[in-house]
């Protein structure tokens, strides 16, 4: 009972204080000229929602390609002698798939040093 009374009182107090301290409101929402982007009085041609290039992504792609390669090559090297040609073919297929990613990165210009 006490808990209910105390929480009710504190809610009433918080609401009452916020109404009491509220500054008089002038604005009825945001008008179109107020919502426009600030360009020092200038105007934009287009909406600001646009696509731009996240340039680090090709680098992360190449990193993952090489890192995954190494991650699977260590256990593969352990069983390679037992498995023989079968393991070689499997790793060849895996590297083939990964190299597609590297080729894609190459096309995107990740190996061009700037």
């Amino acid at each position: 009972m006490t808990l209910v009374l105390v929480s009710a009182a504190s809610i009433v107090l918080a609401l009452g204080l916020s109404f009491l301290l509220m500054a008089p409101r002038h604005d009825a929402g945001t008008s179109a000229p107020m919502a426009a982007p600030f360009l020092g009085g200038g105007t934009p041609d287009t909406h600001a929602w646009q696509r731009f290039h996240f340039r680090a992504y090709t680098m992360t792609l190449v990193f993952i390609a090489f890192e995954m390669e190494m991650m699977f090559m260590y256990p593969w090297a352990v069983v390679f002698v037992e498995e023989g040609v079968k393991a070689l073919a499997e790793m060849g297929m895996f590297l083939g798939i990964l190299s597609v990613g590297i080729l894609y990165g190459w096309r995107e210009g990740v190996f061009r040093w700037q």
């Binding site: 020092g40 009085g41 287009t46």
Partner: peptide, 9 residues
């Protein structure tokens, strides 16, 4: 993105 900036930037 093309925009005119100014005269009060």
């Amino acid at each position: 993105y093309t925009a005119r900036l100014g005269p009060f930037v």
